[in-house]
């Protein structure tokens, strides 16, 4: 197998190769045409190959061909894939501290802000839960909006409205008085089209990527309600097997790609999707007045309090963690304006 490259080559005719090529399998769940593959994974893999003088070669397995989306972190841990990209929240409770970056009530003006907050926050907090793999970078969808079949202008409109949501988002919507309905994203299009649910909550990208603009008419902007955190991580043994120089070269590429591509990857998509949904699909854009938005934020505050309490119970400093996220969010909302 891959673990004994020397023994396999020794059997063959002696090669002049001074560098041993290491092939790394990368698993993610996006389609092969998705920007995550085309604009991030492919160029990043190429940059790493170049930076390591062709020594590290990354082969991408998009679209869950190697691992199912919710098994990717675990799969990297067990060496099924060498590198994996997926959502932290697919492993519920596996990353208690990182939940802070997805909490409602913290405003992120853009994906770049949310990604930078998360990446800096993780470096600052250095939580134990991500130490079992080599975390290479994180990225986020950034803020999510409510897209719906009926206009949502205030809490009254939201009351009892069936909205597709799972996990933390379901809790958030419940706090706002809506009726969350849990179903996979793959069922959402049909369900919206037939009216089983009346709305969905998520990054605007979904409107175009999942074509949900075809089955909804209104878009309420709620930059304080939603965020999803993705990891790009590598198997620790594989990482440790690389020599320090190679590691340094890769880390340099990682930082460059985080700043230049990953952090704002969703902004570009969200902007495009928003333009498409409004200009071509005729969706109506709804912005909440400041006082209305504040009412929403107040209503979801208990979810933050609950997070702090749970953290304290598990022996973390809940308030400090929450504060880190909030302070960084304030800082970068201003900085990236």
């Amino acid at each position: 197998g891959k673990t004994s490259p020397t023994s396999t080559t020794s059997k063959e005719a002696p090669k002049k190769s001074q560098t041993q090529t290491i092939e790394l399998r990368l698993a993610h769940f996006w389609p092969s045409t998705h920007p995550a593959e085309v604009e991030l994974v492919q160029p990043w893999a190429k940059a790493i190959e170049e930076a390591t003088g062709g020594q590290v070669k990354i082969v991408s397995y998009p679209n869950q061909t190697l691992l199912q989306a919710d098994s990717i972190y675990d799969g990297v841990l067990n060496g099924i894939a060498d590198i994996g990209i997926s959502c932290f929240s697919y492993t519920r409770n596996g990353f208690p501290v990182l939940e802070v970056f997805e909490l409602p009530g913290i405003t992120y003006e853009s994906s770049r802000v949310a990604s930078t907050v998360a990446w800096e926050g993780i470096k600052e907090l250095n939580p134990k839960e991500v130490q079992d793999t080599k975390l290479m970078m994180v990225l986020t969808t950034g803020p999510g909006d409510i897209y719906s079949k009926v206009p949502v202008r205030n809490l009254q409109d939201l009351k009892g409205l069936e909205i597709r949501a799972t996990g933390l988002s379901a809790k958030t919507l419940q706090a706002l008085g809506a009726t969350p309905v849990a179903m996979p994203q793959s069922d959402a299009y049909e369900s919206l089209s037939k009216g089983v649910v009346k709305a969905n909550l998520g990054p605007v990208e979904v409107l175009k990527g999942w074509r949900q603009a075809e089955v909804t008419q209104y878009l309420t902007q709620t930059p304080f309600l939603y965020n999803t955190l993705f990891f790009v991580t590598m198997n620790l043994d594989k990482w440790n097997s690389l020599d320090p120089e190679t590691q340094k070269a890769i880390e340099k590429v990682n930082e460059k790609f985080f700043k230049e591509v990953a952090a704002g990857l969703w902004d570009k998509q969200n902007d495009e999707a928003l333009k498409w949904a409004v200009d071509e699909k005729g969706m109506e854009l709804i912005q909440l007045p400041a006082d209305e938005a504040q009412r929403w934020i107040d209503l979801v505050k208990p979810i933050q309090d609950d997070f702090v309490k749970r953290m304290d119970k598990q022996g973390f400093e809940g308030a400090k963690i929450l504060n880190t996220a909030k302070t960084l969010a304030d800082k970068y909302n201003k900085e990236f304006k």
Binding site: G160, T179, P180, V181
Partner: peptide, 14 residues
Amino acid sequence: MRALFKHPILGTYD
């Protein structure tokens, strides 16, 4: 529950 009372069993999926 969802159709009649607007109160789906949230954990159904799980």
